[in-house]
Design a protein around this nucleic acid. Structure first.
Lengths: 254, 254
DNA sequence: CGCTTCATTGATCAATCTCAACTCGCGTGG
DNA sequence: CCACGCGAGTTGAGATTGATCAATGAAGCG
């Protein structure tokens, strides 16, 4: 049984540990626990680090508007989101997909970015931290800073891969790589079933297209080919990988 | 008179401040001065931070080979270089161009990257720092860490722009933006003449192509158009911008 | 229900690639 | 000194990939 984003069993009450939390950097950092258990109040070096209450937004809505980055940094608790850069003429480019536990761009801790928006793909729960307070905390706790930099490095690495994909790979290759990249990240979060490999795949073709620099129509065609050739199956928002070997070959990932 | 990369007046002896230095992060950080003036020896928190002697490589040679990132971080003292990712089948993608004063990827401080190479575009002088020692130093001197993170942020921002360019802009747009982006960075280094805007442009069309995801042949054609339409002039490796307004319009940069 | 978004498919078009030929400048070795 | 080869750039013809346009059906949602 595959976990659905809208599965009510996965959207428990605010109290207690929530499903994304065990893999959430904020959780690992102890930020959540701190906030939840109230230790921050008694701690002298955490005077104000309370995440604003958890927010929920519905699919297709914006989590962060262009100016909202100014002073807070969101962390995804559950659901999928996308970091999108908007051009004045309406073109869009997805810079990254955000999964449960992802901080919305570690680099954002140091400065806001214009023209950028985070939009919910599924229903998304998230928390926000005040930039200043988070920064102050990081100065006090180098082990947290270290972890955050590691997250940032991973983010940078994914961005570099995307550059190579966009610059030098064909549409088919890019789609295959997108799928495999997501499988990998979802696996770390225990959101993939093995044997056969299957997972919920809430992306619309439009979002895929904006992520890999193609049109929605062309995404549809390439995707159909993958299905026709028996590499994947896609039904009811569940993507199943039927021929991993062929898919990896397509992606030139061995 | 425009500074040429191979101008001997710009390649003075190792002693004293060198041309790229005033804008070099290492210089600003005091790393160079420290090394040169020997203060690091007497300082208790800088036991071993000596940059290895300055290296020089000729154009088209590699500064960093695939494994060389393992334990040292290079900083460009003079000349242009490129960070290149190589695919097994020979395709290449330039991730960034490096100018005097650039650290070869701030993220590299925390982990090496495979498949990546830094190649000299012009003759390049550079220094290397030991990763461990540099890291240790940064822990001791938060103001240096702060600057480094700012550099990293700028790098990340450029990478994001490149993603948008590759995913969503036409060849003409990409070339115009590449030129304007370089003008901006070169200006900060006082390597651009105003009125008319002109600067040495040592990139080969192959390198441009690998940076913006096109073929060399097509770069040649687009570039020819720019010249034919009077937007730029290119003679003896000097690029002159004749119609900045039109170029910015092409780049949709206002 | 009725409407909007999403996906599929086919026809045509445009951007870009591939291949190929040719030029030019430069350095090298005979 | 010259022939030669090599890397770089230009140009044209034709092939390909992916975009655009359009029509239709299916699915999600108030």
């Amino acid at each position: 049984m595959i976990a659905r984003c809208d599965d009510t069993r996965l959207v428990p009450k605010l109290t207690g540990r929530q499903p994304g939390c065990p893999v959430c950097p904020a959780f690992e950092h102890g930020l959540c626990e701190v906030a939840r258990e109230g230790t921050w109040r008694s701690s002298d070096f955490l005077p104000n680090l309370v995440p604003q209450a958890e927010f929920t937004v519905r699919a297709r809505r914006l989590i962060v508007h262009q100016q909202d980055f100014r002073d807070s940094v969101p962390i995804i608790c559950s659901g999928w989101a996308a970091t999108v850069e908007l051009l004045p003429d309406g073109r869009r480019q997805v810079l990254s997909f955000l999964l449960p536990g992802d901080i919305v761009s570690a680099g954002l801790l140091f400065a806001p970015k214009p023209r950028r928006v985070v939009e919910a793909i599924t229903e998304v729960r998230y928390r926000k931290y005040k930039r200043d307070e988070l920064k102050k905390l990081l100065c006090k706790r180098p082990e947290l800073l270290e972890r955050l930099l590691k997250d940032w490095l991973a983010e940078t690495t994914r961005a570099d891969h995307l550059i190579v994909d966009l610059g030098r790979r064909s549409g088919e290759e890019r789609i295959a790589r997108l799928i495999l990249g997501l499988v990998e990240r979802l696996s770390q979060r225990d959101m993939v079933e093995d044997n056969p490999i299957a997972f919920e795949f809430p992306l619309r073709q439009r979002q895929i297209a904006d992520a890999i620099g193609m049109t929605q129509v062309h995404v549809s065609k390439v995707f159909s080919d993958l299905r026709r050739n028996g590499l994947v199956r896609f039904r009811e928002r569940i993507l199943t990988i039927l021929d991993l070997v062929a898919l990896r070959r397509l992606a030139s990932m061995g």
